[in-house]
Amino acid sequence: MKTILQAINVNKTFGTKGNIYTALQHINLSIEEGEFVGIMGPSGAGKSTLLNIFSTIDTPTSGEITIDGQNIVTMNEEKLSDFRRNKLGFIFQDYNLLDTLTVKENILLPLALSKVPAAEIEVRVNEIADMFGIRPILDKYPYHISGGQKQRAAASRAIVANPSLILADEPTGALDSKSATSLLESLSTLNESNRSTIMMVTHDAYAASYCKRVIFINDGQLFKELHKQDLTRKEFFQQILEVLSSLGGGHHDAV
C-alpha cells in the first residue's frame, strides 16, 4: 500500500525568545492511500495548526513532511501553490465558496486554474455533481442554497481535480445533524468506492465515528490512536467518547 502522507518529528512553536508557545511537539504520523483518518482533540490541542501545516499554508519549525512522495517543507511559494492545486483538496467549516460564482463555477474552479479543456471540465463536473446529488442546483448561486448543499458543493470542488489527499477542517461544524449525516455518508462513500484518501479534523465524536482511524492530539502531542476495524459505527462512537472523556475535555456534545 502506498503512503500518501508521512510526517516525521514535526514541531511548531510560535512567538519569540522568552515567550515561546509550543503548538506541536514530536508529531510522527503516516497516512496510507485509501484511508479515512480523523484528527480529534480539545480546543487548543493543535489540530488546526497541524492541518494548516499539512495544507502547506503554514510551515513547521522543524521536521519532515512528505505528501505523495514530495517533501513540502523545502518547496518554495510558487511550487507550493502548484502542489496545493494538483495534490490537495480542501473542505472548510465555512464552505469557502465564492459568492460571485455559481455552484458549477465554484466546482470547476480548480480545473479552470489547471487549464483543463472546457469539454473535459463539463464531463467531470457533471460526474461529481451526480455523486453528491447536487446536479439540480449547479446553476444556483451560493446564497440561494442551504448549508448542507453548500458543503456538498465545497466537497465536490475539493475532489474535482482528483487530489492525492483531501483535507477537511470541521466540515460538519456549521451543519444541522441531518445535513451533517448526509455529508459524512457522502465522504464515506467517496472513500470506499473511489479509494480517496481523506484526513478530517473534527471535535465532533459523531463525525469522527465515520472514519476508519481516529488520532487524538492533546497539548500538541499525539495522545492515542483508535482503529475501527470490524466495529460497527455505534461501537466505534462509544470508544471515541471514552477516549475523549479521558482527555478531560468533556466532549459529549453530540450523539
Binding site: 495544507s55 496545493r84 486554474l113
Partner: peptide, 15 residues
C-alpha cells in the same frame, strides 16, 4: 476573503 480562498486552493500570488 475571496482571495484567501483562492490562495488556499492553490492560486499563485503571481496569478
Amino acid at each position: 476573503a475571496r482571495y484567501l480562498i483562492l490562495y488556499k486552493i492553490g492560486v499563485k500570488k503571481r496569478e
